[in-house]
Computed example of a mutant assay.
Amino acid sequence: MDVLIHLFVGLHIIGIAALLGGFLTQMKAMGQGTARFVPGMLHGALTMLVTGVALVGLNQADHHHVNTIKIGIKLALLIVILGLVYVKRDEEKIDKGMFGAVGLLTMANIFIAVLWT
Rank of each mutant, 00 (worst) to 15 (best):
A54F: 14
I79H: 07
G52Y: 08
A76S: 07
H64M: 09
D62Y: 05
T68V: 08
Y86Q: 14
G57M: 02
G83N: 08
N59Q: 12
T51I: 00
L49A: 15
A54H: 10
H65P: 13
G52Q: 05
L84A: 12
Q60M: 07
R89A: 07
H63Q: 13
K74V: 08
N59L: 14
L75P: 05
I69P: 03
L58F: 15
L82V: 10
V56S: 02
R89K: 15
K74T: 10
L75A: 15
V80L: 11
M48H: 05
L55D: 13
H63E: 12
L75T: 15
L82F: 12
D62Q: 01
V87N: 10
L84Y: 10
Q60K: 04
H64T: 02
L58E: 11
K70W: 11
K88F: 04
D90R: 03
A76P: 01
Q60S: 09
V66M: 02
L84R: 03
T68G: 03
M48F: 07
L84I: 15
L77A: 09
I71F: 15
I73Q: 04
L78Y: 06
D62E: 05
L58V: 11
T47L: 14
L55C: 12
L77K: 06
Y86K: 09
H64I: 01
V53R: 02
I81C: 06
V56Y: 11
H63G: 08
I71L: 09
V80G: 10
Q60Y: 00
L58D: 11
V87E: 03
A76M: 02
V80R: 02
I71G: 06
T51M: 00
G52A: 09
A54Y: 12
G83A: 12
I81G: 10
V66L: 01
T47K: 00
A76L: 08
H64K: 07
L55N: 13
V56P: 05
V56R: 01
D90G: 09
V53F: 14
G83C: 11
L58Y: 13
R89V: 05
G52L: 07
V85T: 08
I79T: 12
K88M: 00
A76R: 00
K88C: 02
H65Y: 15
V50S: 02
T68L: 09
V56T: 08
G57F: 03
V87F: 15
